[in-house]
Design a protein around this nucleic acid. Structure first.
Lengths: 261, 261
DNA sequence: CTCAGATTAATGGTCTGACCTCATAAAGGC
DNA sequence: GCCTTTATGAGGTCAGACCATTAATCTGAG
C-alpha cells in the first residue's frame, strides 16, 4: 500500500493557501510496476535488503507479489537504471538480481537527458559544479591523506603526457576533479562532480574542436590544475576554493557554447 | 572502483593507459532496452524530440526499431522514472507517450534509495545541501524579484499558523527552502534542494518525534527562517549565506539521527 | 439542424506462456 | 583425479492476447 499523506483535505480557507499552487496530486493510481518498486524499496529502507543481497528470481518475485513477470521486469529495469540493482544471467553463484550501489551512471544519464531537454541550463549546471567543487577543494585542502593526494597527482601526470589526445586529456581532467572530490571524503560530491562533467562530455569535445589553440588552452588549464593542487597540498583552503572557482569559470568562458550568458 | 559509463567506446588510444588500474570493462553487451533508450536519447540530444513532443505509439516504436513491445516498455518505464517521459492511455489528443521534464521526483527517489543503502551518508547529503543553499541564498539576496520574495513569505506565513501540525510545518519548511532556491533562478539548485529535503522526509519525522520540545524547536527554526529572509530582503549576501549554513547545521545537530558525526 | 447517447478506434496497462542464451553445477567418461 | 558433457536455473526476448480508458465518430431522436 502507499502511505500517501492526505493532508490536502484540511485546506478550507479559499485564497489563503492558493499562493504556491494547488498541490492536488491526482490520487496516483499507481501502476503495477510502481507497486513492485515500492515493495522492494520498502525492504531496502527497512534494512532487510542491503548491498550485495540477492533478490528473489524474477519468476518467484512475480508470483510472491501476485503480478506478472513483465511488471516485475519493468520495476527491476527502473531500479537498475537508478543504479540500485544489478542483474546477471547464468546459474548458481553470481546469477540473479542483486542490490548494488552504482549511482554515478544513473546521475550521468539523468543530467545528460535533462540538460539536452534544456530543463537545466548549462549555467545552472556549471554553477552547481562550482559550488560543489569549491567545497571539495576546501575539504581536500583541510584533510586529504597521502593516498588521495597521490590519486590526484596521477591525473596531473597523465595530463602532462606529451602529444596527448583531447579525449584522454579530458578524461584525465574529469578524473582530476573527481579525485579532489574523493579526497574531500564526500561521496555525493564526487558522484555529482563526475556526473556533471561526464554528462557534458560531448559538448566539451564539440566546444574544444571549435577553438583554435587547443594545446594552448590545455596548457593553461593544466597550469591552473597545478595551482589548485599546490593550494591543496599547502592546506590553504581559501586559496584552493578561489582557484577552483576561477578555473571552472575560466574553462566555461573559454569554451564556446558551454556558457549561455 | 566503479567508473561506469556506457559512453562512446570507439575512441581507443593505444598506450598512455594502465595508470589508474586496468578498467577492462567487458565490452558491455547492451540489453535491448538500453538500445531503445539510446535511440530515444539520440533524438532528444539531436533536438528532434523536445518537451511536449509525442513519441510513436509503443507498438509502432517496437516495429520501427525491430524489437518487441516489452523491450520498448522497459525503456519507456526507465525514461518515465527519470522524469523524461510521460504516458497516458486512451485515444486522440493527450493519449500516448510524450517528452516531459519532471526531474524532481526522479532525483528524490534516487537520493532516498541511495541514502537508505548508505551509499550516501547523511552528512554527505547535508553538506551538499549546505553548499547549494548557501549559494541559493547569495543569489536570492542579490537578485530576487517581488514575486519570488512573495513566494518565500507565503511559506513563512504558513509556518506561523498556530497549532500547526508537524507535517504541514515540515512541508512548508521544505517549500521555504525551495522557494529561495527558485528565487536564485537556478533550476538544478531548486530541484536538488527539494529532492534532498523530500528524500529525508521520513527521517526528519522520526527524528522530530524523538525530541521533547517540538514546538520550541519549530519556533527556533522559524526565527532563523525570518532572519534569513531579512538578510535576503536587505540584499546582504554574506549574512544570508552565513545564516543559511548556520540554520542547516543547527537543524541537523538538533535532530537526533539526522547527523552521523 | 442540434445535441445527447452509443459505438468505434487508438493507446497504454497487464498478463501468459514460450523460447533463447548463458554460466554454473552436477554427472559422466577417460 | 581430471576433463568433458549434460542438466539446471537464472535473466533476456518475443509474440500475442485481453483489459481500461479516452477521444473521435456515428446515429437517431427532438
Amino acid at each position: 500500500m502507499s502511505d500517501d499523506d492526505a493532508e490536502t483535505r484540511s485546506a478550507r480557507s479559499p485564497g489563503a493557501e492558493a499562493t504556491a499552487g494547488p498541490t492536488w496530486r491526482p490520487v496516483s493510481r499507481a501502476n503495477t510496476y510502481e507497486l513492485v518498486i515500492d515493495a522492494i524499496e520498502e525492504q531496502i529502507v527497512a534494512g532487510s535488503l542491503t548491498v550485495g543481497y540477492p533478490l528473489p528470481a524474477e519468476r518467484d518475485l512475480a508470483s510472491k507479489l501476485g503480478v506478472s513477470r513483465a511488471s516485475v521486469r519493468e520495476a527491476l529495469r527502473v531500479l537498475e537504471s537508478l543504479g540500485v540493482v544489478r542483474s546477471s544471467g547464468g546459474s548458481g553463484r553470481g546469477a540473479g538480481t542483486f542490490i548494488a550501489a552504482m549511482p554515478s551512471a544513473a546521475l550521468t544519464r539523468f543530467l545528460r537527458l535533462h540538460v539536452a531537454l534544456t530543463n537545466f541550463s548549462l549555467s545552472d549546471v556549471t554553477e552547481t559544479r562550482i559550488q560543489l567543487e569549491r567545497s571539495s577543494a576546501v575539504l581536500a585542502a583541510a584533510r586529504a591523506g597521502e593516498d588521495a593526494l597521490a590519486a590526484i597527482n596521477a591525473q596531473l601526470a597523465m595530463m602532462d603526457t606529451p602529444g596527448i589526445s583531447l579525449e584522454v586529456f579530458n578524461d584525465a581532467d574529469t578524473a582530476f576533479h573527481v579525485a579532489i572530490a574523493q579526497a574531500a571524503g564526500n561521496q555525493l560530491f564526487s558522484d555529482l562532480t563526475g556526473a556533471i562533467r561526464t554528462s557534458l562530455r560531448t559538448s566539451i569535445f564539440a566546444a574544444f574542436n571549435r577553438i583554435e589553440d587547443q594545446q594552448g588552452l590545455m596548457s593553461e588549464l593544466q597550469a591552473q590544475h597545478r595551482a589548485i593542487m599546490a593550494a591543496i597540498v599547502a592546506g590553504d583552503t581559501e586559496e584552493a576554493a578561489r582557484l577552483t572557482e576561477e578555473h571552472i569559470r575560466f574553462a566555461a568562458s573559454e569554451l564556446p557554447g558551454l556558457s549561455d550568458d
